[in-house]
Nucleic acid binder design. Structure first.
Lengths: 226, 226
DNA sequence: ATTTATCTTGACCGTTTGGTCAGGTTAAAA
DNA sequence: TTTTAACCTGACCAAACGGTCAAGATAAAT
């Protein structure tokens, strides 16, 4: 519950940099914030902004409801904070789509990164899905600037590959939408996939095979043989 | 507001079959039910079951809230009714995946039907997305019976194509998930696509091109040349 | 013309909602 | 040890929630 408390005691008396002063208090704060953020991500992912309740978030986080408001002033502030976190992780995956050598390698890397992200942070993906389904009220700025700029620059790269004859003449947006859709489907529609899989979550092996299948179909589909 | 009222008056006096008796009352009922159902589909699609409110449904339907409860006893009853409608339409699209001649023609037809459904009834698709993201609480029975039986039988068909050497050796579930994901993405993530498309909804031409791109990538991706 | 069945809705009810706050506990600083 | 600053939370509030109901309006049947 209260980690880091004793750890700092063994430090030398000179301030090493990570404070030993307010160490306990700081640890409490960090612990509680993390617990609330994790609970909120889950609850918002299940019910969306409007459907989620601060009472349920508090219950999942195992803190009194008033404590949620002590750390995050309003439901909306909490929601925005989580959206930021999700976007940061999305940007990480986006970075794997770089300018290095082979188109097939780049696309494969990006698809695999997005599949891994769906596997590792399904709640983030679902939260994003809620946000877009609802009409992107909170995040339209972020999409129309950061995400759009990133996407448009990738489209330019892909068009370059096409004119160089490295892949088929395919509208890059259609390709990117297919990658978004398919990779995120494994998070957003995980409940459905689990039912189809005889009520068992996809095993690591099954997921690895799915990932490889997605990569293969898409690469071959656009005329790339990695 | 009250259509069909005068129309039946011009009919012959012999009962033609569509009653002229309670015609007006019946018309009112049908009109109101349709209006409420349309509004509810939209509101549930935006906010999910929990996030939607009967007051907003009433406002969108342009009837007093009490009238919503006159036609549909509870919020849940209304929700279930709409889920049924959505499932019926889904089954229609599913029927296009029949046993006729060429695998490429069958797959193309199914993908196009699903794309058209996303275009024609985006709210239904979004409502379904909410339902699954939340964990399929209302529809797990339907998925684990009707939908799963349908999917499993299609998987058998596809495996047949593979053993006959008509297409690549691809796990059929991965292929079907990709089709589900990509086609529904055009409904569920329509807001995002619109932003990427410079805040313009996809035109008929753009959508037709997207549809053709999806078909082409997937067919070629699994080794089918239609 | 009268009765009957259906449709309509403002007002209301108990519960849940996001958010507040006073008064308490705990730990760091003086 | 005392003071101060941060953390904690039961109890509370106004607003919004799903749902009810009585009383009235409308139209079909008698």
């Amino acid at each position: 519950m209260t980690p880091l408390k004793t750890g700092s005691k063994t430090d030398s008396k000179t301030a090493v940099k990570p404070a030993q002063n307010g160490a306990h208090k700081a640890a409490i704060r960090q612990e509680n914030e993390e617990q609330i953020l994790a609970a909120a991500e889950k609850v918002f992912a299940d019910y969306g902004f409007k459907g989620a309740t601060t009472a349920l978030i508090a219950e999942v986080a195992n803190v009194p409801k008033a404590n949620v408001h002590y750390y995050f002033s309003t439901k909306e502030a909490l929601y925005r904070r989580i959206m930021e976190d999700v976007c940061d992780h999305w940007l990480e995956a986006a970075m794997t789509f770089d300018n290095s050598a082979d188109p097939a390698i780049i696309l494969r890397g990006y698809i695999e990164a997005k599949m891994d992200l769906s596997r590792a942070r399904p709640y983030g993906s679902r939260l994003w899905a809620h946000e877009i389904i609802r009409g992107a009220k909170f995040s339209s700025d972020y999409i129309s600037t950061t995400v759009k700029n990133w996407l448009d620059s990738r489209v330019v790269v892909i068009r370059g590959w096409i004119t160089e004859g490295k892949m088929d003449h395919i509208e890059p947006y259609s390709l990117m939408y297919m990658i978004f859709a398919t990779t995120q489907h494994y998070a957003d529609f995980g409940a459905q996939i689990e039912i189809f899989n005889n009520d068992q979550p996809l095993s690591e092996t099954q997921f690895a095979e799915a990932k490889e299948n997605v990569v293969r179909i898409i690469l071959k589909g656009v005329g790339l043989n990695g």
